[in-house]
Design a binder for these strands. Structure first.
Lengths: 351, 351
DNA sequence: ATGAAAGCGCTAACAA
DNA sequence: TTGTTAGCGCTTTCAT
């Protein structure tokens, strides 16, 4: 019995009684092969348990048919955006691409020492970069240095990026509330302190879209929240206070679901009925799955960002030297059950 | 100006004035190279922006240095276990491996039609398979058919698998409660119906470990819950009822965090003080991050499973024909704040 | 529609 | 320690 080594294209060719090239053509589909021949080839391949060598194909063609997704992590509790990855895979499937993932702690990339393998070697055709926090300078250098085709996800850049249209979504949500007669609409954000500029564009854009729309309607924006209240309890009691105050809002836009849930709690404590006395909305990855009524949400289109990201990267790989226009992806509006017309005047403060 | 094509090892060799093989050795580190030579090589490489071709290396050596992680998804809302992926990456980093991810909806694998690229082609050295639900038969066939080195994660098999030691954890947790004087300890599980056998081994093992330990201590196991109560509200009110009943427990073991939270709610409604009147524990991926006191938890060691999984797969790749013993990974005990001695007798029912 | 032949970028003997 | 040489498994002209 000869040493059992994996079957190669050559073996298949021999078994099928055809030339190597024919087998290659049958598997790549890049040139016509007679139906009968193809069947014989596939049969032989199956019998031999033949699998095409991706590396050999890659070497010969110069294409790995692999995209890499770079993820930032904060220590071990990294954020792995499920819907984004699903979207990416979804976008890749029809093109027979596969996905490599590199999840690196921020400091690993900032440090000069370590260069991640996927950048250091030629192992994929292009990069999808999903850094929700600040992007390490060193990485940008590497990408330029090596001429890597790369698309930025969830990040606003001058070119080659795909991101949710936070600004547009904020405008549209605020308008919707105004149209329902709300005038006291508060924007709640416990992530970013009021003084600092948020490090993620969504912090800026959601707020800016809201403020701009309020002002255009002749209303005064009200911003609530502070990044100092780290702990859930503090946030909740702060919201309770707010909802019990005389100048409480009739509608709330939460930066995330957390803020919306805090508002729900505050409303409960202040004996306000949602949505009769208080309309609650927020931005979130999906409809909130926790208990209680579904919150009216502008849904961050992670899945779609993945799909569009792949499409964009495919273009970039074809023409690496052409800078692609930034591509905002519209958010989806999910009605939920926490939306109502503004209550009649002068009533709300005296329940 | 000549057409700009990526630098190859040959270019580097020429620029550094050495032979190809020397450059190869410098980069692979598999054979000694004079320090001075090596420096010249790296300089030349840097100047040329040289990156090693992973495909060429793979073809030559027969190793891709890539492991693939197969994930099941339920439609778009797939479970992507963050800590597991982190652990896998962590385990791979020192060996200069990289990770490919394939997240497939269950039906895609069950169907005869589609064979995922990572199985169909030679693109990685081995497979880490993380199917939390039933494993499609077709996949097992493919793996055998192609002789793929594979390790099952979070799944009990006859061999080649790595999984959290649910049984041991259940035993140890139950013992702990018994030692604190608890006799009425309930096991709560709203995932699995009481009659059916759970599809995931953790459903069996956590329950079995609990029951076995109770019986050995001469206590009667009490199982609560039913998979029919799909909706959160129903679960909560069911727990409330349980906590108000005369034969309420003094300690609870939740199958997941959801059950523990339901117990918290039930306790609140029944005016029981946690942990004075009721000890609450559960199994979970990490310490519960929601509001309220941290729940005493047996932490599922996802991160560690990733690390051990990689280690095991490395062994499997070296010796594909040796069946490796199943490797349970111990769970970690997190005290939390919901644990106390059993209340004195005859008191608890009359608050 | 198929065959013949050259070579992609790298590594592993072997020789020096 | 370094150079020489052959070839990994596949694709792609160019013929036929």
């Amino acid at each position: 019995m000869p040493a059992k080594t994996a079957a190669t294209l050559k073996d298949v060719a021999r078994a099928a009684g055809v030339n190597d090239a024919t087998v290659s053509r049958a598997f790549s589909g890049k040139a016509p092969v007679a139906v009968a021949t193809r069947e014989r080839v596939f049969e032989a391949a199956k019998a031999l348990g033949y699998r095409r060598s991706g590396s050999a194909v890659a070497m010969r063609t110069g294409r790995t048919n692999c995209f890499a997704l770079l993820l930032s992590t904060h220590g071990d509790r990294s954020v792995i955006p499920r819907l984004l990855i699903n979207g990416v895979q979804h976008g890749m499937r029809p093109h027979d691409l596969h996905l490599a993932v590199e999840a690196l702690p921020d400091h690993q990339l900032t440090s000069e020492g370590h260069v991640p393998k996927l950048l250091r070697e030629v192992a994929c055709d292009g990069l999808l970069i999903n850094y929700n926090a600040r992007i390490p300078r060193r990485m940008i250098e590497l990408i330029r240095e090596f001429h890597l085709p790369a698309i930025w996800l969830n990040s606003k850049q001058d070119s080659d990026c795909v991101y949710p249209d936070d600004h547009g979504a904020a405008v549209s949500l605020t308008q919707r509330l105004i149209e329902l007669g709300h005038t006291r609409i508060a924007f709640v954000d416990y992530t970013h302190s009021k003084s600092e500029t948020p490090w993620h564009y969504s912090g800026i854009d959601r707020r800016a879209g809201y403020e701009q729309t309020m002002k255009q309607a002749g209303l005064s924006p009200v911003r609530v929240g502070s990044s100092e209240l780290r702990d859930q309890d503090a946030i909740w009691s702060s919201m309770t206070e707010f909802m019990q105050s005389d100048d409480r809002p009739t509608a709330v836009i939460g930066y995330r679901a957390i803020e919306a849930r805090a508002a729900m709690h505050g409303a409960l404590m202040a004996r306000l009925v949602v949505p009769r006395d208080l309309t609650i909305t927020c931005f979130a990855d999906g409809i909130d799955q926790d208990v209680g009524p579904h919150i009216t949400t502008m849904v961050v289109p992670d899945h779609q960002v993945g799909i569009v990201g792949v499409q964009t990267l495919r273009e970039k790989v074809e023409q690496p030297d052409i800078a692609l226009e930034p591509r905002p992806v519209p958010m989806r509006y999910e009605p939920g059950k926490t939306l109502a017309h503004a209550p009649k005047r002068n009533c709300p403060t005296k329940p």
